[in-house]
Amino acid sequence: MSADTASNHSRQNAFDPALNPELFSGVRSRRMFAFLIDLIVIALLTFGAGILVFVLGVFTLGLGFLLYAILPTAVALIYVAMTLGGPSASTLGMRAMGLEMRLWYGAKPYPLLAAVHAILFWFSVSFLTPLVLLVSLFSDRKRLLHDLILGTVVINSAYHREFSARPA
């Protein structure tokens, strides 16, 4: 088997639920709790940023107050891009729940993909709720609609470290 063929074979089977079901065990429920944790973290960050915008608004004689219109969205996008698209490939809520995100072939997501992932999540939940959540019931990797579109998968972190440490 050539190196290219071996590389393509490992990419195709990076996260196979039939070969490694422990990578996906409990992901759906822990993902919901991670979302709630992230919601609290984003609210706290937005509150802190709101104080800074208030000070900026005073110094700019009211012009800085216009930032309040985009503050929650900007804080959430920056949070997701920097955490989910960062080296740990997980938000703080996902880390607390022992989850991480990977691309379908095993690579970590990058900040732009993480931000697009969040935007697609918000749009899909806004327009398709609760149908977007039903997709995970029929997906072998417990992926949501925006995961399928972007080619991402959420897995258990501990099992992934064990899985990737196995000799080939």
Results as ranks from 00 to 15, higher is better:
1 M>R: 12
5 T>V: 10
5 T>I: 12
6 A>R: 13
8 N>L: 07
12 Q>H: 02
13 N>S: 11
17 P>C: 04
25 S>C: 09
31 R>H: 13
31 R>D: 13
32 M>P: 06
32 M>G: 14
35 F>G: 01
37 I>Y: 13
39 L>D: 06
39 L>G: 05
40 I>Q: 05
40 I>S: 10
42 I>L: 05
42 I>N: 01
43 A>Q: 08
44 L>N: 02
44 L>M: 12
44 L>T: 07
46 T>A: 12
49 A>W: 15
50 G>R: 05
51 I>Y: 10
56 L>H: 03
56 L>V: 10
57 G>D: 00
60 T>K: 01
61 L>M: 09
63 L>W: 06
65 F>V: 05
66 L>M: 09
75 V>I: 14
76 A>E: 11
80 V>E: 10
86 G>W: 01
88 S>R: 15
88 S>E: 08
94 M>Y: 01
95 R>K: 15
95 R>G: 07
97 M>Y: 04
99 L>R: 03
100 E>Q: 11
103 L>K: 10
103 L>F: 08
112 L>A: 13
115 A>G: 15
119 I>A: 14
121 F>V: 15
121 F>H: 14
122 W>S: 13
122 W>A: 15
125 V>L: 14
128 L>C: 13
131 L>M: 05
132 V>Y: 13
136 S>V: 10
138 F>G: 15
139 S>K: 02
140 D>Y: 05
145 L>S: 02
148 L>A: 06
150 L>C: 10
150 L>H: 01
152 T>P: 06
154 V>I: 12
159 Y>R: 15
159 Y>T: 12
162 E>A: 15
163 F>C: 07
163 F>T: 08
165 A>V: 04
166 R>C: 04
166 R>N: 09
166 R>G: 11
168 A>L: 13
